[in-house]
Design a protein around this nucleic acid. Structure first.
Lengths: 126, 126
DNA sequence: CTGTATCCGCATTGATACTG
DNA sequence: CAGTATCAATGCGGATACAG
């Protein structure tokens, strides 16, 4: 995985720790909801409900769950305004923005190979 | 999602079709096994068992399933050698290689923010 | 070796109700 | 509005057996 970057590292322990963490990150972040949240959040600041409306099809629970996960990994910053009713804003941190670049890369990839993908699918399904 | 790229498109139907396909791709590809397969496949050609050994922890079933999915979307090419015992080679197509670039981007991102992520987690878990 | 099919437990998910 | 908790469903994923 990230093994390549760490080849030749003096500490093998670091290598395995890095690898297992990388594996964890993949498990956490490499799911469609997280990607969609990151993508839709963009450089904006959205509150819970706004985000819920943007990311069509996501359930209340999944949104909460993924936001917590992203917050835990430091990709999203959560700011609570002590008002009533409460207002909670979500925004991407700098690491979050950096990851968003790769998510956008995947979006670009999708639109670029749209036709090829559809063609390949038709071929395969036949 | 890919809406931005298609803003101002003359055909609204294309926009929604593109969006829904993009959504499908996300659902398909944005999972850890697919990412790991793409990453480990790299520019090499590997057979089923080799791939199984590389992607540690993946089950027979998940490997087959993901390889089919990737083949269907035209990301991997599957070539069967009519020998006995059979030999099946898997390799990334050009679209697959292109997507691999973004997957690599995520690997780089992981190793780059490793420390920040660990720190953020410790903070959050406290 | 590669692949399909089946069974089954477990985790994920959605729906719902409830709190601050 | 934002979030937690609970419960039921269903779908994912692993293990196994078997075929080509």
């Amino acid at each position: 995985m990230v093994t390549k970057q760490f080849k030749g590292s003096p500490e093998d322990a670091d290598l395995t720790r890095a690898d297992s963490l990388a594996r964890e990150i993949f498990s956490d972040v490499a799911n469609k909801w997280a990607f969609l949240i990151i993508e839709f959040l963009g450089e904006r600041t959205l509150r819970f409900t706004e985000l819920r409306n943007e990311v069509e099809g996501i359930s209340h629970k999944m949104l909460t769950q993924n936001l917590r996960m992203l917050e835990r990994n430091g990709l999203v910053e959560r700011t609570v305004h002590p008002t009533v009713p409460p207002r909670v804003d979500y925004t991407l941190t700098e690491p979050g923005q950096a990851l968003r670049a790769t998510v956008n890369g995947m979006c670009d990839w999708t639109s670029r190979y749209l036709v090829d993908i559809e063609a390949s699918r038709r071929r395969f399904d036949a």
